[in-house]
Design a protein around this nucleic acid. Structure first.
Length: 424
DNA sequence: TCTGGGGTCCTAGGACCC
DNA sequence: TCTGGGGTCCTAGGACCC
């Protein structure tokens, strides 16, 4: 008997996090915005009903948001990350076989023999998460991950099922797949949906019956897997241990255009600082650094997009060296006279710091890497204790006029003492 | 004039996910 | 005026090898 996949997915996760600590938001329209307060990235049901799509640019919907008195929040990733950890740790009590798929979703697998009534088990999971965190979760159950995703969609869209839905019996599954658009299937994005439409394929049910060689040719190997998974053949296994990370990116859109090289250099130095912090947090070293900059893809006028990949002489996590390399790279690709809207860096070719490759020809034999490590440890420790950027490289700027400031941030209720909610 | 076959590796770009 | 950020994987094409 094949195992069953459960997909537990938090409903409107960011909005739900805000509501846990601010019950006055219950039953009212709420959105959470992207990094620059530019786009809508989470919507309450009331907002979905207004027809505001995911990713909607705020400025285009300003009047609609205002008219319906939508409560607007900047994204508070510190809060969402902490709430996510709580939800995941509760889910993990139900099975050791769990894959955390994203900040608000986890796949869990059970041998088909174990849950005699999978829906009952799922309802128990749901109730526990709700009771212990206040976050509503929906759960889809099926013999493949792709079908579990589809089942989850049904659980969410049809509340009469109590937030849990199973697609287990193959005969019944087809009738449900008939009602799901092909573009809503996990793994079918905009481009593939358009291609499918051109071939008369509109529903998940139709997608399931395409010829294998056609799917392989037109949708690539990943698309063929999707088709098989819709048929109930599991092709995408549970990944319990997260695969090693391939890269760390840090980038930001500016809230207005930046033309000066000096400002871009500051921004890039800051992004490198953030990426290097993450690198050390994961006990990794980078052997390669990429720096990129771009004008706005939305504006008319001259466009310029470029990037440069710089191999580093030896794998490192030493911020000052990474900053110097990135700034040098930036100066190479910078062209004056363009209104830049975005810049960023990526750290690539990551290796474990325990496997440090010693160079036969160190770039600077007078430098002692052990000393650099100690300096970074000290800097990280100070910044953890006294707050981010207490110690930083001067090249990342002092006033940082190019930086955007989210204006509708909620308190960090669960991770900062002075933001702790008070019950009166 | 006529110019092989088989293989690996790297990169850029595309597509997808949340 | 104002449009997110951080990831992964796949494919095609070019460079290179013998």
């Amino acid at each position: 008997m094949a195992p069953l996949f459960f997909l537990a997915d938090c409903n409107n996760f960011y909005v739900s996090c805000e509501r846990v600590f601010n019950p006055s938001l219950e039953g009212r329209p709420v959105v959470v915005l992207s990094n620059n307060d530019g786009c809508v990235v989470a919507r309450s049901e009331e907002v979905k009903a207004l027809g505001i799509p995911m990713g909607a640019p705020v400025f285009k919907y300003r009047s609609l948001l205002k008219r319906h008195r939508v409560r607007i929040f900047s994204s508070n990733y510190t809060l969402y990350g902490d709430m996510s950890r709580r939800v995941m740790s509760i889910l993990s009590r139900f099975t050791p076989d769990m894959e955390i798929y994203s900040i608000d979703e986890a796949f869990l697998s059970f041998p088909a023999s174990v849950p005699s009534a999978p829906e009952t088990l799922a309802k128990k999971m749901r109730e526990t998460v709700w009771q212990w965190t206040g976050i509503p979760v929906s759960i889809g159950i099926a013999p493949t991950k792709t079908l579990a995703k589809a089942a989850n969609r049904i659980a969410k869209s049809e509340p009469e099922h109590g937030g849990v839905f199973a697609l287990i019996d193959p005969a019944g599954t087809d009738a449900w797949l008939e009602r799901i658009r092909a573009g809503d299937v996990w793994g079918i994005g905009r481009r593939r949906e358009a291609l499918l439409k051109r071939h008369g394929i509109y529903t998940a049910r139709q997608l399931k019956t395409v010829q294998d060689d056609w799917a392989r040719r037109r949708l690539s190997i990943t698309g063929l897997r999707t088709v098989w998974e819709l048929r109930g053949v599991s092709c995408i296994p549970l990944e319990e241990a997260p695969p090693p990370r391939k890269g760390i990116i840090s980038s930001r859109t500016f809230d207005r255009c930046v033309e000066r090289l000096e400002a871009l250099e500051e921004a890039v130095a800051l992004y490198v600082t953030r990426a290097a912090e993450k690198l050390r947090q994961h006990h990794l070293l980078a052997a390669c650094l990429q720096v990129f900059l771009a004008t706005s893809p939305y504006r008319d006028g001259p466009r310029y997009v470029n990037s440069l990949t710089i191999p580093l002489p030896a794998p490192t996590a030493y911020t000052p060296f990474l900053v110097t390399s990135a700034r040098r790279g930036l100066r190479e690709i910078f062209r004056s006279g363009y209104p830049y809207k975005k810049a960023g860096v990526a750290l690539l070719e990551l290796t474990s710091e325990r496997m440090r490759q010693v160079s036969l020809f160190p770039p600077d034999s007078r430098r002692d890497p052990a000393r650099d490590d100690r300096l970074m440890k000290a800097m990280d420790a100070v910044n953890v204790r006294y707050g981010r950027d207490t110690l930083r490289v001067a090249s990342s700027g002092i006033t940082r006029p190019w930086r955007s400031h989210p204006s509708r941030l909620s308190p960090r209720y669960t991770t900062r003492w002075r933001d702790l909610p008070v019950v009166v």
